[in-house]
Nucleic acid binder design. Structure first.
Length: 279
DNA sequence: CAAGAATCCTGTCAGC
DNA sequence: TGCTGACAGGATTCTT
């Protein structure tokens, strides 16, 4: 579920609740997530003071005073739930729980257990195996048309698959790739290597705008990033193509030649696009 | 080497 | 109502 905008919103919500506070207890309920969670992780967090948060692609980093970082990935079905002090009803698939000194519970709920947790020295974040190979941050200064073209050069795979490759650019998932390609009027089937020049020059700002607007929607639709349910970072968004097969295409109003939004499958995943306006 | 398929796991939903 | 199969926003590992 969570792509860069959702992860960013979750991170901000966690920061609002945890930054500058002390974790008085931490419990690993299930350590068999995507990879086995290190056995000492909960003990290392217990009593720790939270210094700051950062995000890299779809990964969240929680930096502790004392020099360690918690690395968190939500996978497909991971959510963070914040509940205020008081009795808490049991929640299914609650694999990791932290409690702050002011009595709030912060829990990782992940039915499919594709998420991951790890603990590492803050000084070694950049060389961590899960982070070292990531491409540029799409909202950072290194994400330019020239650099994207260079990363795509020679790639004989569809642009859709290339943009899902976290080594090309970090943080995009199936939804935002579909939305950004629509915005840039580029077919998901187009050969990645052919996305250069004017197309790359359209694609970069299309990705930036798509992600920026989604983050803004998340922050504005949730009060302090927390829904009434306590859930962080998930928000309704008006997708233009994702999940809208058969719907009218906004780029071709009144054009009889436009048959609307199509759904195709590429490398086992759904792609939604307008075959008329996306080339 | 690169590209696509298979894989981990559970929940949900459409169709019968 | 209950069963079955397809599918889900991720990312690694295996095959070709």
């Amino acid at each position: 579920m969570p792509e860069l905008p959702e992860v960013e919103t979750v991170m901000r919500g966690l920061a609002a609740r945890l930054q500058g506070r002390r974790i008085v207890r931490a419990d690993m309920r299930r350590a068999d997530l995507r990879w086995p969670v290190p056995s000492g992780l909960a003990a290392a967090l217990t009593g720790a003071n939270v210094a700051s948060f950062a995000r890299r692609g779809k990964y969240i980093l929680m930096r502790l005073q004392g020099g360690d970082s918690l690395l968190l990935h939500l996978g497909m079905s991971g959510r963070m739930i914040i509940t205020p002090p008081g009795p808490a009803a049991p929640v299914l698939h609650e694999h990791f729980v932290m409690q702050t000194e002011d009595g709030f519970r912060i829990a990782l709920v992940d039915p499919r257990r594709f998420g991951s947790l790890d603990l590492l020295p803050t000084s070694e974040e950049a060389s961590h195996p899960l982070l070292a190979g990531l491409g540029p941050e799409p909202l950072g200064p290194d994400f330019t048309a020239a650099k994207l073209s260079a990363a795509l050069a020679g790639r004989r795979t569809p642009i859709k698959a290339a943009l899902l490759d976290q080594r090309v650019v970090a943080g995009l998932g199936n939804i935002y790739v579909c939305e950004a390609l629509f915005r840039a009027r580029i077919s998901p089937r187009r050969l990645a290597a052919s996305v250069a020049g004017a197309r790359a020059a359209r694609l970069v700002p299309a990705i930036v705008a798509t992600l920026t607007e989604a983050i803004a929607a998340g922050g504005s639709s949730l009060r302090d990033y927390v829904q009434p349910s306590g859930e962080l970072g998930y928000f309704q968004h008006a997708w233009k193509v994702y999940g809208r097969a058969g719907a009218a295409c906004e780029l071709c109003p009144g054009k009889p030649a436009c048959s609307g939004i199509s759904r195709i499958v590429q490398s086992g995943r759904s792609s939604f696009f307008c075959p008329r306006s996306q080339r």
